[in-house]
Amino acid sequence: MPIFSYLAMPRNGAKDALCAELSALEYCQVFPAENQEVVVLVTDTPDETIERSLQSALKTVESLQSLSLAFGYDEKE
Rank of each mutant, 00 (worst) to 15 (best):
M1K: 06
I3Y: 05
F4A: 14
S5Y: 01
Y6N: 02
A8P: 02
R11T: 14
N12H: 15
N12P: 14
G13I: 10
G13F: 11
K15T: 10
D16L: 00
D16T: 03
D16N: 02
A17V: 09
A17G: 01
A20S: 05
A20Q: 05
L22F: 06
L22T: 04
L25H: 05
L25Q: 06
E26T: 09
E26V: 03
Y27H: 12
Q29R: 05
Q29D: 07
V30E: 01
F31R: 10
A33Y: 12
E34Y: 08
Q36W: 14
E37T: 05
V38E: 00
V38K: 02
V39T: 01
V42A: 08
T43M: 12
D44G: 07
D47N: 12
D47S: 08
E48C: 06
E48V: 05
I50P: 15
E51A: 07
E51I: 00
R52W: 07
R52T: 00
R52D: 08
S53D: 13
S53N: 13
L54I: 12
L58K: 12
K59I: 07
T60N: 15
V61W: 11
E62Q: 11
L64R: 07
L64G: 05
L64N: 02
S66T: 09
L67E: 01
L67V: 09
G72Y: 15
G72L: 14
G72K: 15
Y73K: 03
D74G: 09
D74F: 13
E75A: 02
E75Q: 00
K76H: 12
K76D: 13
K76E: 12
E77I: 00
E77D: 02
